Amino acid sequence: MRLIASDIDGTILGHDGSISVRTIAAFRDAADAGIDIVFVTGRPPRWLDPIREQIGHTGTVICSNGAVTYSLESESVTASHLLPWETVEQVRHIIAGLTPEPYFALESLDGLHVEPGFFAQSRPASLLDVVPAALSPGMADGGIIKMLSVLHTGSADEFLGLVRPSLGRLISVTHSAPELALLEMGPLGVNKAVTLAEYAAAKGIDAADVVAFGDMPNDIEMLGWAGAGYAMASGHPDALAAAALLAPRFEDDGVARVIEERLAALHRA
């Protein structure tokens, strides 16, 4: 074990925005043992406060499902994969032809842009300052890293199953929202595994020496690529089916328990 790659939401971070004391200690012990740590998330760079403030992570975070590599040490984007506006327009047209009343948003390197109707009755406190506006080509100037589409009925699994066959040659599409019919779309061929593999190669680390944790469909490729890919027992069925290994539930500090066991094995070796 030379590198630990972990998803954030639902894997180490709860709905209340907290990371357990045991999990924080496990990551710190791993770092003290010389193991590289990278967090791999669907979150954009502006939503990294939990790992910055609670874990004290100052290294690399792979954001937006692989579209952005971000340094917490320099607070800067070190690499990115962008969506062209032409692809955004094509995808909007296709999805609008497949289902009534889809709403769209764009995550760019300079912020979140949502169209009217994207938010339902309520929105997270972190998004209260986002003012809905018509999506326009000028938003591509900020570098589009993720496209979002939401339905206010149904499930994410149903929405994904509906649109994926028509989008497979244009864009990468996945989801990570357990209770919303919300899809996350990024540059074609880009996912968590692709960017994690680039990061590991730059460090001279083979996939066999990577331990990865995740819980949702946007983690599937990463869990399959890592030498030891652990799906959380509390995770999505598709993540569980894709992973060779199973970590205890999030509620049982599953990530921390696996890290503790692997560190103990290293010390015994």
Rank of each mutant, 00 (worst) to 15 (best):
P237K: 11
E73H: 14
P187G: 03
R268K: 10
G66R: 01
V190I: 03
L245G: 01
E261W: 07
D219C: 08
A31M: 14
V88K: 07
L151H: 07
N218I: 11
L127A: 11
L266R: 15
D238V: 10
V40C: 02
L48W: 02
K192F: 06
M216N: 01
S76M: 12
D7V: 11
Y199M: 05
E158D: 12
P84A: 04
D141S: 14
A133V: 06
L72K: 02
L112C: 01
Y70W: 01
A96P: 13
T58N: 08
G14A: 13
G254M: 07
F213D: 03
V68S: 06
L246W: 03
E107Q: 09
S136M: 09
R262D: 09
V194I: 06
R123V: 08
I145Q: 10
I145K: 10
S149G: 05
A197L: 12
G154S: 09
I8M: 08
I24N: 00
I171S: 12
L162Q: 09
H81A: 12
L82Y: 12
A226Q: 04
I145M: 13
A105G: 13
A228D: 02
V194E: 03
C63I: 10
V211R: 12
P248W: 09
G254C: 07
S172E: 07
K146T: 00
D29F: 07
S80L: 02
V38E: 10
L135Y: 05
L98Y: 02
G154C: 13
T11H: 05
A26H: 01
A265S: 13
F104H: 00
E251A: 13
A140G: 01
F27A: 01
A265G: 13
A193N: 01
T60L: 14
L3N: 08
V255A: 13
N191P: 01
L182Q: 04
P165R: 15
L162C: 11
E86Q: 13
P45R: 02
N191E: 08
